[in-house]
Design a protein around this nucleic acid. Sequence first.
DNA 1: CGTTCTTTGACTAATTCTGACTATAATTAT
DNA 2: ATAATTATAGTCAGAATTAGTCAAAGAACG
Lengths: 155, 155
Amino acid sequence: MQGKNISDIIEKYLKEMIAEDERVEISRSDIASHFDVVPSQINYVIKTRFTIQNGYVVESKRGGGGYIRIEKVKLLDNIDILDTLINAIGDGLTQREGKAIINTLVLNDLITDNEADLVLASINKQTLSVGNKLLENEIRANIMVAILDHLRYKS
Amino acid sequence: MQGKNISDIIEKYLKEMIAEDERVEISRSDIASHFDVVPSQINYVIKTRFTIQNGYVVESKRGGGGYIRIEKVKLLDNIDILDTLINAIGDGLTQREGKAIINTLVLNDLITDNEADLVLASINKQTLSVGNKLLENEIRANIMVAILDHLRYKS
DNA sequence: CGTTCTTTGACTAATTCTGACTATAATTAT
DNA sequence: ATAATTATAGTCAGAATTAGTCAAAGAACG
């Protein structure tokens, strides 16, 4: 698993940093030049090895003082149901289906009533009205998946 | 909110002043020379970090004895601010502006940290990515307004 | 062999920094 | 009073500095 290619080496390097600090902020170009690879390879490493499924949350900022921040989060136990729901969503979700999912989340104590109300407001038909049913359902699906992904861990 | 770029440092400095006094009056050129930047950088810092979305109101005066006054507003005292925010949103909202608003809502105890995280996931750039930035910002604006409207009914 | 994973780089996007030019208010000179 | 001068702050566009995307080429794997 280690050392076969440069991506694995960079992965190991970053994970050693995170093992110490739980949260790490890097400069993409610094890491890239340290390992003598093109900067976009850092994006590749992050996209393939620091996913939320693996328990990592990544944020970044461009411009002067820009950074990539990688944080290790603790995944919760209930994630099977989340995977199931995400798979069911696919790339489209109607309002009715969305409401059903939110209901499930409340019943399983994954979100509170108040949180459910906010999510409902977000995925509401009028809120997402965009003159194209297919696109609307796709956006609703994206939002729902983002929320389910967030529920994978505790902040 | 780090210290790698000078704008963040100036932001932090000003917020420390405001933390003490709730309202602060500065001389643009003094601050600029204190941090050794051009004066217009102070405008940049204010425009990007002390907006109404961030919960600040800024007034200024030119000419002799001129100043820039920054004041932190409280949503509780001032429920009109919700309308002001909705107005400011108009028909487009960037991710950055959205984050600022959500942060302000948390600081004013209108939503919890968990609720904020869910809303953040909803309005995230990746989530709303639809290949058209104008449309993306419009959807984000719709979501944010729906949330703010919901909050108004609750209180 | 064909498939999947890795590497590369050209192009894009976001954010910050800078300076020339503009606008406004107070003070001083006529 | 009015005009000229001085002292502030504002705007805007371009340069500089980061990071992101995407697709094609190359390597490894089965």
